[in-house]
Design a protein around this nucleic acid. Structure first.
Lengths: 210, 210, 210, 210
DNA sequence: GATGAATGAGCTTTCATTCAT
DNA sequence: TATGAATGAAAGCTCATTCAT
């Protein structure tokens, strides 16, 4: 039935357009300033239409994050698979994570810089649980990567979990500060690329066997 | 001019009360949930009164950050003065910074996790320039501390500015992630104290002469 | 014409399902909280389908009342037929009426406690005329019952019509107040059964020959 | 301070205008169809202004009832005081109650024909508690009136509370049915005055010593 | 006959801000 | 200096209804 297929496609397309518009507004104006009306205006549909595609605003936001962080996980897993040299794989993964955040600044801030309590009040829709699961699986890449480096004697640390969390914190600091402050003319920022490389150097040296 | 002086003093006092009330609400409810009316209610003045002391809401918020980060600078400078052993001074300063953020979560997120563009639209009042100056001076503590460690041969790195910025990023990652996510039951977080110590270990080891 | 008949039967069935679902929701949530969408959800049809069976929401509501008050009339007529002692028949009928209202609270309130003007704006479809006719016939039971009691010298009153209307009002007061307020903890309500019996006592004594 | 007084008066006036507009709309369209916007439109103020005078919609509705039922209680108490003949006082009070309901039809329906549960969800503001208290005190008039008639040997009944509640139910039936159905051309309604008088006759005869 | 998609109108409520006093 | 009164704008959301398919 070609008709049904076309309909499904069109439906998916509109859903995509909503997410796209939401994402753009999101980046331009920040989470707090995005309203369903503005999104609807931008795609030239009525606000009520959005409710045909998303249960409510938080569902939409969750879907947005999911859409964005799905690819992050996929890419990190690809890097993991393709890297033969573990230390270099680790470094490439970390770097990709940082750059990914920089390229999706508002989604990044929403997901990782919004206090836990505020996120917590969102109802636990399937969507949101999916986001959580995706996040956990993404973190697994980092754990595996570090573990492999230790196996090969390239890095040295005691507790894998603690170390993985600390490494995440360090690179999160890089991406989040690049997002929120880099470019501020009141601060003598060093070039982004240099910061990323030096930051990675420090973290990896900090774990290296001396 | 005793009368004028008293007036000025009273004016300053009310301004202080407004900031104090705003800060409390801010910590309790987060930026998005603080309204001028709630602030006014709390100090038992009318909302219109606030406009006699602050140009608008964003002016108030900027002043709020200034109030909070003044003490941070003072304390970091104190630590700097009192530390005889440079490496230990560095570590104590970094740790204090992290803990300071954790104790002022909303101010911290507002100041360091809000995208630059959104802050940027504020007009450059003297207030805001002050905030900037304070921030720069605070960062100077870190520069000096690192430089002293290098002087004594305790640490080794090429460019001071780049290194200082990277160290800031790393510890910023620790405090901001502790604020926004630590406690989330969906993630197997390691105890806070351990994360802080291990994080500091990694960063400092990453700069150490091998 | 077997096909046409089957179609007609099926059509009637769906109409019945809609009314049934509407009635359930109605009882559970009250008139104000019932939407066509909820009804449609409950029977797993689309909201648009309802418009194939009812002109609009008010048409549906009118039909709903019709459905409910048909059985009331039938039962009252049965009581009338089966009662040999007229005074006892009257009392049983009145009591059944009260209890019927209590068991269909929302339909009762809708039918008898909604101001005339609001119902009046509905166009006079055959449906609504039917409702009216059913109501009139139901009221006839009361008239006949009172008349019979007077014939036998058990009750005494001048004008049958006036008396019948007054008796209706009195028992309507009992059922409607039981529906809307009984159970309110702010009022020292006497037990329902007692109120019904005493209320009936008063009304019947009020008509009795002294 | 003439100024303060004038302000207070003006404020009270606007509050009155809001309640008046609400009451009118209420009568014309029924509770479910009255919105704060419509009220605001009618008095040519912005919707937000209403919130300066009433906490929310339910507060407004409660105030409306209070405004209406305060006078009912006052008048019933006046009738009680002024009546020297107890039986006549009872009858006058009951009649006034009925007519009062007929003159404030929607307020009456809202207060006495809205299912308990739906009213219950309103927050217990002081306003609403006031309405409850007023209602209880009003009911006390009826209790006292009946008790006095029994004392003088004019009426005869066992339990005062049960009897008072039944009498209330009976006259509530009269007023509520007059409100909701009297005037319906599909029913052969007897003249209002006659119904009221006959209804009162029946109730009072039903309590009379034979 | 049935519906998926869409919408215009409506709702209650909150907010930052203004201005006459 | 301080404010009471007022408001325009905006928010998230629900509803009865229509219409092409």
């Amino acid at each position: 039935m070609g008709i049904a297929e076309r309909r499904a496609r069109e439906k998916e397309e509109l859903r995509g357009k909503i997410l796209e518009a939401a994402g753009e507004l999101f980046v331009q104006e920040g989470l707090a300033n995005v309203s369903l009306r503005k999104i609807a205006d931008r795609i030239e549909y009525s606000p009520a239409t959005i409710y045909l595609y998303f249960r409510d605003k938080s569902d939409l936001v969750a879907s947005l994050c999911q859409e964005v962080f799905g690819p992050l996980k996929a890419e990190l897993e690809r890097i993991e698979r393709e890297s033969t040299e573990p230390l270099e794989g680790l470094r490439r993964g970390l770097k990709f994570y940082i750059e990914f955040g920089v390229h999706h600044p508002h989604h990044y801030l929403l997901t990782f810089c919004t206090p836990f309590q505020q996120t917590e009040m969102l109802e636990k829709t399937d969507e949101i649980l999916d986001v959580n699961r995706t996040g956990l699986e993404t973190f697994d890449c980092l754990r595996r990567s570090l573990d492999r480096c230790r196996d090969r004697g390239l890095l040295e640390f005691e507790d894998l979990e603690t170390t993985a969390q600390c490494v995440w914190m360090a690179i999160h600091g890089i991406s989040s500060l690049l997002i929120s402050s880099h470019g501020d003319p009141h601060f003598p920022w060093v070039a982004r690329e240099r910061l990323i490389e030096t930051g990675l150097d420090i973290v990896i040296r900090g774990l290296r066997r001396c």
